[in-house]
């Protein structure tokens, strides 16, 4: 069956809420009926057909073509199937994502993967602020799954993350990994100020040594970690090839919070 495809007809002026267009909800529906579905905009309601040409059948495999940063909440709350976004995505991409895969060829705006709990989100480009962080009303940020960011990440990446894995191919903004409760973040590029601020548990792994390391981290020296082998192999299984090596400098912190987390600065 061909993928159920949503091709954007014209660039929307106001943000569109595409959270209804997920495999869970569209299973068994005809393209014609889907085009008639209500599509909430920032302040009103349009129909899916107003903005998208809908073709194909297979709701377990969604495609969005030509989307822009006004296309919000793509894949939000989705729990199954695969979604491919050929274009950019707006805010709350894959927020509260519960399972399946979501891939974006372009960039995503704020709150990408926020409060996701399972599945894999793979964004080839950059993401805005608070990716993998909290959404409004949540007590925790990302709670599981994998969030792969090919490009740069905005500030407050992974704020109060509780479980799961995030990788950043490029650079990350300030307060990356702030208040993380648990989970793992791999930074391949640079990070902004106050990375790991208020970290309770969890691992921040840096390919490049951060320019600033918070004074409330305790240096534990360079050690060999079997764990790095495991991580490297797990990433490889997900198509992310990165050499982590065996040794890393370990700093424990943030002593301002619980102090049971770590920074691993790879050698």
């Amino acid at each position: 069956m061909s993928a159920l495809t949503f091709e954007l007809k014209q660039a929307p002026e106001e943000p569109l809420d595409l959270s209804a267009l997920i495999p869970d909800r569209l299973a068994g529906m005809k393209a014609k009926d889907i085009a008639g579905l209500a599509l909430p905009t920032l302040a009103g309601t349009a129909s899916v057909g107003d903005y998208f040409k809908v073709t194909g059948k297979d709701a377990a495999s969604l495609r969005f073509l030509g989307t822009t940063d006004r296309c919000d909440r793509i894949g939000a709350g989705s729990s199954e199937g695969e979604i491919l976004v050929d274009g950019d995505a707006g805010a709350y991409l894959g927020a509260k994502f519960k399972g399946g895969t979501l891939e974006v060829t372009g960039n995503a705006a704020a709150y990408a993967g926020a409060a996701m709990s399972n599945g894999t989100i793979d964004i080839k480009g950059n993401v805005g602020e608070r990716a993998g962080g909290l959404t409004v009303g949540e007590v925790h940020g990302m709670r599981g799954g994998r969030l792969f960011i090919g490009g740069n990440a905005g500030p407050y990446l992974a704020e109060r993350m509780r479980r799961g894995l995030i990788t950043v191919g490029g650079d990350a903004g300030e307060y990356a990994g702030a208040r993380v409760v648990a989970g793992t973040i791999l930074f391949q590029g640079k990070v902004g100020r106050n990375a790991g601020y208020g970290l309770k548990r969890g691992s921040l792994i840096f390919k490049k040594k951060p320019k600033q390391i918070l004074p409330t981290y305790a240096d534990c020296g360079v050690i060999e970690f079997t764990y790095l082998n495991l991580l490297e192999r797990a990433l490889k299984a997900d198509g992310i090839k990165v050499r982590l090596g065996r040794e890393a400098q370990r700093l424990m912190g943030d002593m301002a919070a619980l102090g049971k987390g770590e920074m691993l600065i790879l050698r």
């Binding site: 106050n194 918070l214 004074p215 409330t216 305790a218 700093l251 943030d254 301002a256 102090g259």
Partner: peptide, 28 residues
């Protein structure tokens, strides 16, 4: 040279009785 944010975190670490990197500096 430290920011207010780091000053606050150092104070919190010290209040909780956890040792940290800059504990022995003048600021610490």
């Amino acid at each position: 040279n430290q920011s207010l944010a780091t000053g606050i975190s150092m104070l919190a670490a010290a209040v909780a009785g956890r040792s940290f990197g800059d504990g022995e500096s003048a600021l610490g």
